[in-house]
Nucleic acid binder design. Structure first.
Lengths: 244, 244
DNA sequence: ACAAAAGTGTTACACGTACACCCATGG
DNA sequence: CCATGGGTGTACGTGTAACACTTTTGT
């Protein structure tokens, strides 16, 4: 048998929604599209799935092309397939979201891809349905981070509790009580206190912590309760159901 | 511009993992594949995405073809794209999971598609990577049902609390305390008690309830806690992250 | 000495869990 | 009358949320 007959073939792409945290704000890594159509417009980093490659592999390859990074946290988000989403030719996109330690991406910004970090509230106009992808990724991140210890992926090896709290506050655009936050966090047993302090943001200095990698790997799926009243903070979750 | 050059085109399919509940067990609707390759083997219901159609629309069309049903709860599960998953030709599959009221599917079973319901623990050998899809759907259903009022989709309009509890017990393969379960359930305010009783499974009879559709629609995203200690029951969740 | 951020403890309440008995009915 | 499944209430413990003061140190 040589192939299925009478069916349309189409292009498959992978697009990466790349989140980073600079110690103050959550940011998104965008590129300026280098080819037509829409050359020069802002876009997610993406590319076509190649023969011999799964979409997962494509996504990792694409992320590596832009950031030089391997072993990054990445998760399939959703597949976007409305027929005219790409005006040139029918292209279905499998979107992934990735969490990277922004410090590890000290690449030559504005190099080949003219990449830039954007504050989540200052996303420029994006091509095609990329804005919708970003929006879904943002919600998914909110959803998952409320339940699983995910956001460590955005932090450097050594980090402080106030840093982590700012990260959570950024994700949910709210503020938390530092005493309760700190207690819950430490009660997970995932953190190992260091002797060294980070003096960069206060006179007193905040203790550095590192992740207990063993427990992190084992407990990743367990439920946490960092976020008080997630009901009020979370709206849509992952793939919203459809009823056609 | 006439199309992107130098890229591989491939087939896109949608496959449906269809769950039903017969009042006792959770079941999966499978068909016997009617064309080569693997004609006659058990398979998920699926089909190719047509021109002018999104994958979501395909999935709903496919579900309608088999069951005659519209307006069914359906959610995109994951996209499967390893190059050789279909031996005939590269085909990427967007998998969906659907929850249907098994009573509404009184179609002519063993008709055109030779469809049959299978108990989740007695799934036959399936073609390609369909077993993996089913497994992921099962886990996703467990995950989501622990957090959101999802399983009502599997029940008829009128149902009893013991029925619902058996459903949850089937999903998690465990037993619950009926007093606590009932209390939590009713405290959501989602259920409206009827005067009528279901006498089919006990002498005393169990009261029928119906869903408060208004509140159901409004509260679908809110978090519930039907499941005690979800940590122990849930393992992998939705799309597991990859680190290549 | 003072400003700015880090760190820590207690209390009240809500929620979750465990648990046992009575009820209704058909046979 | 009795067996079967349905329905209900309470007590206890845990976990969560609210809340204020002390510590450190650079200027």
């Amino acid at each position: 048998m040589r192939g299925y007959s009478g069916q349309q073939r189409l292009l498959l792409a992978a697009d990466c929604i790349i989140f980073g945290f600079d110690g103050r704000d959550i940011k998104l890594l965008l590129i300026q599209r280098g080819f037509e159509p829409a050359r020069g417009k802002w876009s997610l980093m993406g590319g076509f799935v190649q023969p011999g490659e799964s979409a997962d592999e494509s996504a990792h390859r694409i992320l590596r092309q832009l950031t030089g990074l391997d072993g990054v946290y990445m998760e399939q988000l959703h597949t976007f397939s409305v027929p005219d989403r790409d005006p040139v030719e029918r292209t279905v996109s499998v979107a992934y979201f990735a969490l990277i330690d922004i410090n590890k991406y000290q690449q030559q910004l504005s190099d080949e891809y003219h990449a830039e970090w954007f504050h989540l509230k200052k996303i420029p106009e994006l091509i095609f349905d990329h804005r919708q992808m970003v929006e879904m990724a943002r919600k998914r991140l909110q959803y998952k981070a409320a339940l699983h210890p995910l956001l460590f992926e955005l932090l450097p090896e050594k980090f402080t509790i106030p840093q982590l709290m700012h990260l959570y506050e950024g994700i949910y655009d709210t503020t938390f009580d530092k005493r309760n936050f700190s207690r819950k966090l430490l009660s997970t047993g995932l953190l190992i206190k260091q002797d060294e302090k980070d003096k960069s943001s206060s006179r007193k200095g905040a203790y550095y912590y590192i992740l207990d990698q063993q427990r992190y790997a084992r407990n990743f799926q367990s439920f946490l309760h960092f976020i008080p009243n997630p009901d009020h903070l979370l709206r849509d979750d992952t793939g919203a159901p459809s009823r056609l």
